[in-house]
Design a protein around this nucleic acid. Sequence first.
DNA 1: CGAGTATATACGGGGTGGGGTATATACGGG
DNA 2: CCCGTATATACCCCACCCCGTATATACTCG
Lengths: 111, 111
Amino acid sequence: MDSNFEVIAEPNRRAILSLLASSERSVQEIEQRLRMSQPSVSKHLRVLRDAGFVQSRVDAQRRVYRIRPEPLKEVDVWLSTFRHFWSTHVDALERHLDRIAQEPRGKGKKR
Amino acid sequence: MDSNFEVIAEPNRRAILSLLASSERSVQEIEQRLRMSQPSVSKHLRVLRDAGFVQSRVDAQRRVYRIRPEPLKEVDVWLSTFRHFWSTHVDALERHLDRIAQEPRGKGKKR
DNA sequence: CGAGTATATACGGGGTGGGGTATATACGGG
DNA sequence: CCCGTATATACCCCACCCCGTATATACTCG
């Protein structure tokens, strides 16, 4: 798994992250709430941990997982390149795109 | 391809989107700038278009592609669930996480 | 219309990721 | 210690994605 984007491409992993967004959880809690098999949860958590999306602490026999924000922050940084497309100046942008789309063609071309 | 996240999981597709972020481009321009084969570019553009990330207009024999922000906006919305982890109140959050991380067995460690 | 250019699709192959089952490892309590 | 619980890993299999090559389609212009 070589990129953060591939990590969050998997729906179950996104579900795990969303679940952990509210609070930390043990493997079993994740398993029950998301109705996934235990090995599946463990494997996804392995991927998430290796990529730095989560970290675990030990609580008796349990491993409690919680979010680590860094990789998500990196995704956010990538997105920021595009954010001007919708965040502000939307109307001006739309007008701009429309204008580009109707650029006058040099050769008279029917449409 | 059933989710926006899978679409942007592919590095070449992210490269295409990043390229189109600055301005619209023909297939050939993308092909040359990113050193990808023409069929590969066309196929990735197909995926991007089907998912709504780009749209094309016709310019003589060329197809000129440009960004459509909606799917990226959706990704941004998903991310917003996690943004409080790093955007503001960072210090309070870090203290909170550190406190949680304190294991009952007095193995205090700092990053 | 025919040639040339630009883009899209068909097809086959190789690599990989995710699921399930079975098993291994860690840990705590009695 | 030993047992039960909690979690991690091994292994196999299947589906799917991406690539390259070859071919088809679209459009323009002479």
